[in-house]
């Protein structure tokens, strides 16, 4: 069973509907005690990094998620939820993240090194390029297009956390992870068949790992 973390920042409906279509059992909750009963967690989210971290703290979810990740249990962050898995963001000068993955969210500069302006947010369908084609999240997934909407981009020195990336005037970490802490910058629930397959794969990772903790 997947627990979708409701902290007031996500489009929970579309994630839920996607899981329903895949027949992946799930529930929504903001209560850490209830979420603790799940076998895997999804951390959705759109909007402000700063607001998101504040809400996670207010609802007592931050410590819970940190313990969850430290125990090696499966966690999938989506969009802003993925960025929260990293060290922090330059939003509001500096906002501390959950710190599971090394890297930092920076605003797209909107202009290339040679001075060409480009659009921000990075919005629309962009192509994936696999860094770890054998990764469980990418099983049966082709290097096709997925749907992105974001103004901040993760910058990381640690290439090991890159499972797939994309290109928007710079390298955009698109699927990331270490151990069972995973994330997608794009919206799998909005990325047609490729996105649905990735969600399904996460469902499988969760289902297969279930016995470990019972």
């Amino acid at each position: 069973m997947i627990g979708v973390i409701d902290y007031g920042m996500g489009n929970l409906h579309s994630v839920s509907k996607a899981l329903e279509r895949l027949n992946v059992p799930y529930f929504l909750s903001e209560d850490p005690d209830r979420l603790a009963e799940a076998d895997g967690l999804i951390l959705p989210g759109v909007g402000s990094f700063h607001d998101a971290m504040n809400l996670l703290q207010e609802k007592g979810q931050e410590d819970f998620i940190k313990k969850w990740a430290a125990d090696g249990r499966p966690l999938l962050g989506i969009c802003l939820g993925m960025q929260l898995l990293f060290d922090g963001s330059e939003e509001n000068k500096h906002t501390e993240g959950l710190g599971f993955l090394p890297g930092y969210a920076k605003h797209f500069p909107g202009v290339t090194e040679d001075g060409t302006a480009y659009k921000v947010p990075h919005m629309g369908w962009n192509k994936l390029s696999f860094k770890q084609p054998q990764h469980d999240l990418l099983k049966g997934v082709v290097e096709g297009h997925v749907y992105f909407v974001h103004s901040y981009v993760i910058q990381t020195e640690d290439e090991d956390v890159l499972i797939a990336d994309s290109d928007y005037y710079e390298t955009v970490p698109a699927v990331v992870g270490r151990g069972r802490v995973l994330g997608t910058q794009f919206h799998p629930e909005k990325s047609s068949t490729i996105g649905m397959k990735i969600l399904e794969n996460f469902g499988t990772i969760v289902a297969e790992g279930r016995n470990t903790y019972e």
Partner: peptide
């Protein structure tokens, strides 16, 4: 629509 559609 949201229940059936996998695009934005």
């Amino acid at each position: 629509t949201a229940g059936t559609l996998a695009i934005p």
